[in-house]
Design a protein around this nucleic acid. Structure first.
Length: 110
RNA sequence: UGAGUAACACAGACAGCCGCGCCUGUAUUUCAGGUACAGGUGAGGAAAGUCCGGGCUCCACAGGGCAGGAUGCCGGAUAACGUCCGGUGGAGGUGACUCCCAGGAUAGUGCAACAGAAAAUAACCGCCCGCCAAUGGCAGGUAAGGGUGAAAAGGCAAGGUAAGAGCUUACCGCUUCCCUGGUAACAGGAAAGGCUGUGUAAACCCCAUCCGGAGCAAGGCCAGACAGGAACAAUACAGUUGCCCGCUGUGUUCCGGGUAGGCUGCUUGAACCUGCUGGUGACAGCAGGGCCAGAUAGAUGGCUGUCUGAUACAGAACCCGGCUUACAGUGUUGCUCAUUAU
RNA sequence: CGGCGUGUGGCUCAGUUUGGCAGAGCGCUGCGUUCGGGACGCAGAAGCCGCAGGUUCAAAUCCUGUCACGCCGA
């Protein structure tokens, strides 16, 4: 499993000093961390829905990262924020949104 | 067959591949731990809302009084409850059945808008009688009638009367007492009384019963970091809630500085399943069986295939008993009513 | 886990304590005024008081449940 960002100050650091791109379903913040690994964080706000819907979106994003982790360049902190429109979407939609944002950030190696 | 009513049950399943948390075992290693492999296990009927009750932990092993809060027909169940069961009374339904915060208004206080004479110690119109200056006025009697209102001073009939009136009587209602049945609420019956009083207690209140406070971020252990200064006070301050008493302890407040960790509590329980017994029932007892989540930014997911079609509400966070609310689609059983056939 | 508050015309708020008529300002519509507009004056419309049930003769107000939003503490 990938290494996750856990503490609130780490999230705030990425929000304040990182670069962001967004598409229809997701927002991706990215910041270089001078480490030999990537760290990922997932944020789903209460506006997206109730606990079951938020958890579902979190799982889809996590699965997308797990299956595509080797494509990412090394040495970044990456935070993915789900938007309201992400509720109820299928796995293929979320995966393509993640890969699209990765290409915008030019961190995908393929 | 149709309509209805009540009580339950399910909440997608199976197979393959790739992944996650926990436990156990084996191997390895830098050995309070990490990694790899194998096996086992892994969200709900409401996990939800947090509306009640309890366990557990700490605070004087938990005290007294006032205040405050909750409950409210009777009996029972339970660890406890505002929950449940069985009755009583009332309401709805042809019925099965369902619903009801259902104590006290002669303990006291308050309120009853508008209309109406009057909203609670009744005389506006009307009716009757008397007097006078007589198509009118004054004094008195009268609650049968009128109109107002949500509600009008027991209802209705007969007797009675100047006109009337529980003034008297029959029936009904109410109150008191007695008898019978029932643990009781209450029901049935008999007698007496006089209708001296309406409604509201989900108005204040009274009565009875119950309630100490805080909450797993409770509480305990380990490791680590830092820097102290000022003010107040033993008639003070804190520990526990609003207040007082009692008890215990010695600090409290402000400024500045530091603090991003780990372990435990953490799941064997007033539990669950099956059967028997007792009880109308809630429930209780006995026997047997197995262990059935324990995460800590938070574990159940993705893809493919089959099953007509795969879809509702919704995610444990210390635990348990209830209540309330949300919910696609199904299934089972009992009972009631209507129609038809035999 | 514990506690508090707010839902009323299109918008911002009173009224709830002590039950009986739903109000104010801005905005909107019409008329007047002005050469025209603004300002001003006059008149008017617009609300099942978040939802459901109950108590009461009568509920925005009292009681119960529920929904949404906001805030505070650990």
């Amino acid at each position: 499993m990938f290494i996750s960002i856990r503490k609130n100050y780490e999230f705030l650091n990425v929000y304040h000093h990182g670069k962001s791109y967004a598409n229809k379903y997701l927002v991706m913040y990215i910041l270089e961390n001078q480490k030999p690994v990537n760290r990922f964080g997932i944020t789903v706000s209460k506006k997206v829905g109730n606990s079951v819907i938020r958890h579902r979106v979190t799982r889809l994003i996590r699965e997308s990262i797990r299956l595509n982790e080797e494509q990412f360049a090394i040495g970044y902190d990456i935070v993915i924020v789900a938007r309201n429109t992400a509720r109820g979407k299928k796995y293929k939609d979320i995966e393509s949104a993640v890969l699209h944002l990765g290409r915008l950030h030019k961190v995908l190696e393929k």
